[in-house]
Computed example of a mutant assay.
Amino acid sequence: MAIRHQVIEQSPEAVWAVLLNPALYSEWVVGTTDSRPLDDQWPQVDAALEYSVPIGPLSYEGRTTVRRYEPHRWLELEAHSGRLGTARIAIEVRPWGGHTLVIVDEHPLRGLGGKLHTAPLDLLIQLRHRTMLPRLAQTVERTTHQAPSADAHASPEARPPGMRS
Rank of each mutant, 00 (worst) to 15 (best):
M1I: 03
R4M: 13
H5I: 00
H5A: 10
E9H: 12
Q10M: 07
S11H: 08
S11W: 01
E13G: 09
E13M: 01
E13Q: 14
A14N: 09
W16E: 08
W16P: 09
N21M: 00
N21H: 01
N21P: 01
A23P: 00
A23R: 12
E27I: 02
G31N: 06
T32L: 14
T33I: 08
T33A: 13
T33P: 00
S35F: 03
S35V: 04
S35I: 07
L38C: 10
L38H: 03
D39C: 11
Q44R: 15
V45K: 06
D46C: 02
D46H: 07
L49S: 04
L49K: 06
E50Y: 01
E50V: 09
Y51I: 03
Y51Q: 11
V53M: 13
V53Q: 09
I55G: 01
G56F: 07
S59D: 07
G62E: 05
G62R: 03
R63N: 10
T64R: 06
T64W: 06
V66Q: 09
R68I: 11
R68W: 02
Y69I: 09
E70P: 03
P71L: 07
P71Y: 05
H72Q: 15
H72G: 14
H72A: 15
W74C: 05
L77M: 13
E78Y: 02
E78V: 14
A79D: 15
A79L: 11
A79P: 05
H80F: 11
S81T: 09
S81I: 10
R83V: 14
R83Y: 10
A87D: 05
A87V: 05
A87M: 08
R88W: 13
I89K: 03
I89S: 12
I91K: 00
R94F: 10
P95W: 01
P95E: 12
P95Y: 00
W96P: 00
G97Q: 13
G98E: 14
H99C: 04
L101S: 04
L101E: 10
V102L: 06
V102N: 06
E106W: 07
E106H: 05
E106D: 13
E106V: 12
E106S: 13
H107D: 08
L109I: 07
G111S: 08
G111L: 09
L112G: 05
L112S: 11
G113K: 05
G113D: 10
G113M: 15
K115P: 02
T118A: 14
A119Y: 02
P120G: 14
P120T: 13
L121A: 10
L123V: 11
Q126H: 09
Q126N: 11
Q126P: 01
Q126R: 11
R128P: 00
R130L: 13
L133T: 10
P134K: 04
P134G: 02
R135P: 00
A137W: 04
Q138H: 07
E141Y: 01
E141H: 04
R142M: 02
R142C: 01
T144C: 01
H145G: 02
Q146I: 01
Q146Y: 06
A147T: 12
S149Q: 12
S149H: 07
A150V: 11
H153F: 14
P156K: 05
P156H: 03
A158Q: 12
A158P: 00
A158V: 00
P160M: 03
P161V: 09
R164A: 06
R164Y: 03
S165K: 05
S165V: 08
